[in-house]
């Protein structure tokens, strides 16, 4: 049986992990390779690196990070941020990443998903979707540009479109739940997961181990991503996994 995956997410800027990482027992909590190795040891099933560099230099540095992570770790990882053309995908995948994730670029240019899937295979292509509830359509609306811009896309319609275009996986972030630590958005996750035939990673809202149990059982998620609760050591990947095993969730 395929196991449910627990995925820590690391924000990387100019080659350093940023945004609230508090690791007292690491020599240098800003080093992506060291943190990646830490999460690997803890039992993380996969990692996501989000490149939030604004400059070309920062993006080039990211390629070095990808190379180092691939050289030292034996678990799969995805790189998102700054993937705007086929050439960007090539660079990241050749450096040793297993998947690339696109968000705004996929909305602006849906053909990009198709191009990537044709060239590298659907399994390499993740589409990240930021969704926020909109009462006027009684559903969730897709946002781009880091949640700053509303689009015309309703989330289910968009999820089905990216699946058709060849996305191999969806990374679904609930903007309503993100940062609240009051649990994943179960309704949203379930709606998307049941609408498509590709795996869905739930993101946004993880506050404790119970929330993972909910999103796997009720939300039908295939994987769940979290950042701050792991970075701040509010819980650990191994604690969450032990808890889920006791609850009967299939876990590695």
């Amino acid at each position: 049986m395929l196991t449910k995956r627990i995925i820590p997410c690391l924000d990387v800027k100019d080659g350093r992990v940023v945004k609230g990482v508090q690791f007292v027992d690491l020599k240098d909590a800003g080093d992506p390779v060291e943190l990646a190795a830490f999460y690997d040891k803890e039992g993380a099933d996969e990692l996501v690196f989000l490149d939030i560099s604004a400059s070309h230099e920062g993006r080039d540095t990211m390629i070095d990070v990808v190379r180092h992570v691939a050289a030292e770790l034996a678990i799969p990882f995805t790189v998102g941020g700054g993937i705007n053309k086929l050439e960007d995908m090539k660079r990241v995948l050749r450096a040793g990443a297993d998947k690339v994730s696109m968000n705004t670029a996929a909305v602006l240019n849906p053909e990009l998903v198709k191009e990537g899937a044709d060239y590298f295979g659907t399994q390499c292509i993740v589409v990240a979707i930021d969704a926020k509830y909109d009462p006027s359509i009684d559903s969730w609306r897709v946002y781009t540009h880091g949640g700053r811009k509303a689009t015309d896309w309703e989330v289910i319609e968009w999820a089905k479109t990216v699946e058709e275009n060849g996305a191999g996986e969806i990374l679904l972030t609930s903007m309503n739940a993100d940062g609240e630590k009051s649990g994943f958005d179960i309704k949203l996750t379930k709606a998307v997961s049941e609408a498509v035939n590709i795996p869905v990673i739930a993101s946004g809202g993880a506050g404790n181990a119970d929330h993972f149990d909910e999103v796997f059982k009720d939300g039908k998620a295939d994987a769940a991503l979290a950042a701050s609760i792991f970075h701040y050591k509010e819980t650990s990947v191994s604690e969450v996994k032990d808890f889920l095993k006791k609850r009967g969730v299939t876990i590695r």
């Binding site: 395929l2 196991t3 191999g168 996986e169 035939n197 590709i198 795996p199 295939d222 590695r252």
Partner: peptide, 19 residues
Amino acid sequence: EGVTEDGTKYKVPHMGWNK
């Protein structure tokens, strides 16, 4: 196939850790 003989749908790709 993405669907079992009794009509249950399942996800493709087969993605993740399996024993």
